[in-house]
Design a protein around this nucleic acid. Sequence first.
DNA 1: TTGTAGGCGTTATCAC
DNA 2: GTGATAACGCCTACAA
Lengths: 373, 373
Amino acid sequence: MSGETQGKLTILDIARLAGVSKATVSRVLNRNPSVDPVLAQRVMKVVQEHNFVPNITATVLAGGRTQLIGVLAPPLNWPAIPEIMRGVAEYLEGSPYEIVLYCIGSQRNHADVLNRILAMRMISGLLAIFPGGLARQLPVHFQQGLPLVMIDDQEEPEGVPWVGVDNLTSAYKATQYLLACGHTRIAHIQGPLSYHCTVERYQGYCQALREAGITPDPDLLFQSNFEQSGGRHCASVLFARERDRWPTALFIGNDEMAYGFLEVAQELGVRIPEDIAVVGFDDYIISAHTNPPLTTVHQPFSDIGRTAIDLLLSMIDHMSEKQPTRDGRQTSGGVPTQDYRMDPPCIHLPTTLVQRASSRSVLPASRQPGSNS
Amino acid sequence: MSGETQGKLTILDIARLAGVSKATVSRVLNRNPSVDPVLAQRVMKVVQEHNFVPNITATVLAGGRTQLIGVLAPPLNWPAIPEIMRGVAEYLEGSPYEIVLYCIGSQRNHADVLNRILAMRMISGLLAIFPGGLARQLPVHFQQGLPLVMIDDQEEPEGVPWVGVDNLTSAYKATQYLLACGHTRIAHIQGPLSYHCTVERYQGYCQALREAGITPDPDLLFQSNFEQSGGRHCASVLFARERDRWPTALFIGNDEMAYGFLEVAQELGVRIPEDIAVVGFDDYIISAHTNPPLTTVHQPFSDIGRTAIDLLLSMIDHMSEKQPTRDGRQTSGGVPTQDYRMDPPCIHLPTTLVQRASSRSVLPASRQPGSNS
DNA sequence: TTGTAGGCGTTATCAC
DNA sequence: GTGATAACGCCTACAA
C-alpha cells in the first residue's frame, strides 16, 4: 500500500533517496558484508518504504544469479505431478526463488525445448520431472555446470542427481505382505519393460516369492502398459481362464492399471478381495475412492518434490561458488563438500504400504499380518 | 546437435557471421518487414545453423516484450488446478510463451507477492487462478495497463477480465434434472455464502424449484464449507432425522462435499440413489470413481484455462499496441478494436450434466428424463 | 568502506 | 533498407 511499484524505481532512485551511490545500494541488496551497517540500515529503510524490488532481467544480464528455478514437467494432470509440484512449491515458498514451468506435451519440438530454456539464460537450476525422451540430454548439461536434478522412474538414475523411491524394496514388501496374508498364488501385472521401475518392481516381487520358497509362475505374470486400459485387458484375460488357474492375490505394477482391473472385476461380479486380493503401486488420490478402496504402495510424491528441490538449491549454492572446472575436493566450514559432478547424488525415499479394502488376510484371525512397511 | 548453445553467442556474433550489423539481425529476429528478404534469408540461415536464441533478459531490459506469462495459482494439488493448467499449458505450447508459476500457499506474505511479481517486470501478462485475497488488488493493476485475466468462483467478476462458468444456469439444470427424475423433495447443501458461486448455485436451485411450482423448503437447505468434512457433517445431521423428513434427492454445491456425504451414506447403509439421489457440482476426476460414481455438473476446467490464456494473449497483443493511456477508440484492420479496460470481457463457458450411478429416475420407465443439457 | 565507470545483450532512434 | 549508438538496470572490478 505504501509505495506504489508503478513508478518503476531503480537502484539509482534508491541511491539518491538514501544519499549514497548505486554501487552501495547494490551491495546492500546483495548482502555484501563490506558495507557499513549504518549505511546499510539507511538503504534498507528506503528500499522497504518504497517496496523496491530489483529488476530481475537487469540483474541477470549484469551477471548476477537469477532467483528462478526451471521446472520441466509433463502435463500437470498426470496423477503424480500435482503432488510433486506441491512439494516443490511449498519448499520454494520459504525461499526467494520462483518457478519457471516448462510443460512438455505432445506438440512441442522436444529436442529444442532444453536448448531454448538454457539459451534464455534465465534459470539458475533445473528440476526435470519425468523428462522422458529429454533424459538423454540431461547428463551433458549437468556436466557443463547446470545445477540439475531429475525425478524419474523410467531411466536408470545415472549421470545426473536423482530423487525417487526404492522400487525393488517397495515391491518386495508389497509381495511379502500378500504372502503374510496367506496367499501363495500371487500374480503380477507389470508395466512396459523399458521402464526401469518395471524391472525393479518385478525383481522385488520375485525376490519375495523366492524367499518364501515359491518359484515365480510365468502363468501368473502379465505384461502391460501402465494404463487403465492395460489393467482392463489383463483382467479380461485373467477372468476368462478356468477358475482354478486364477491367483488368489495380485500385485499390480501401478495404480492406474489397478483401476482398470477393479472396474472389470466389478463388471464381472468378481469379488475383491474375497476372490482376489489386489495391491497396487503409487497411491494416487483416486486410490482411496475406488471400489473397493485400493491397498497400495504409497509413493511420497510431495516429499520427492521437496527433497529434489532441496538438493537442487544446495547444488546451486555449491556449484556457483566454484569455477566451472576446478579440482575435485575442497572443504567448507568443516562439512566435507561433495563434488556433485564427480558423483551425482541419488536419493531413495522410503515408501509405505497403505492397507485398504482391496486386500485382506486369508489366515485365521490369530495370525493376521502386521499393519505395514 | 549441430550448434551447441554453450558458446553463448550474441546477435553481434550472428551479425558478423552474416556480414551485417546487430541492428539488422535484431530486425530479422523481430520480423521487421523493412528488411531486404535476401538479407533476412542469409541472417536466418546463420541463426538456424547456430541454433541461436536471443538472450531474453537482454530483450526485456532493452524494452522488448517478454515471452513470459505469469500464472498465479493456489497449490497445484487442489482438484481443479491441474486440469486448468493443462489447458493453459497446452495452449501455450503452440505459442512462443512460457509460464512463470507463482504458487500461493499459506506461508508467503500474500500482499507482497503481486508487487514482487510486477516489480521484476518479467511477465507480459498475468493469469490469476482463484486468487483469493489477492483478488482485491487485481483491478488496480489491470487499470494501470497490466494484461490480466482472472479465473475465479469466489469474487463477483467485476473490473477485470474473467473466465468461468454460468453457475446459476448450471445449478438450474441440475435441479431441473432431478425434478425430471420425479423428485419433489430436493435438498441442497451450499458452500460458504461469501463465495459468489454459492449464491448463484443456490439461486439456480431455487429458480428450478419455483418454476416447478415448488417452494424451496428451508428445512432442506444446508449451509456448509465446500469441504469433504462439511459433506460428512451434513450427512450425519440429515440421516439423524426421522426418515419422513429426508429428501429423496440432494443437489450438493460441490463434489468435495459430495464425497463426504457418500462416505457417510455408505457407512450408515443408506442406499444411493435408491434412498437419496445425489448430484454434485464440478466433476473432479475422483467423481467417476466414488461409490457410487457421482452424477455431477461438469466444469470444463481445461477449456476454462485455454480460454483464459487465449483472452490474455490477445489482450497482450492489443494493449501493447497502444500507449499506456491514449484516447479510447481506434480501429485496426476493419476489426473494431475493443478497449479491454473500458469494458473487461467476461466469458461464461457452458457446463454439462454428467449422469452416473448416484442418481436415477424414480419415474416409470416410459417417462425417463432425457440424457443431459 | 564507498564511489566511478564499464559492460552484460537487446531494442530503438537516429542518421545515412 | 541499413548501420551506428544510446538507452535499459544492475553488478563488479578498480580507484579513491
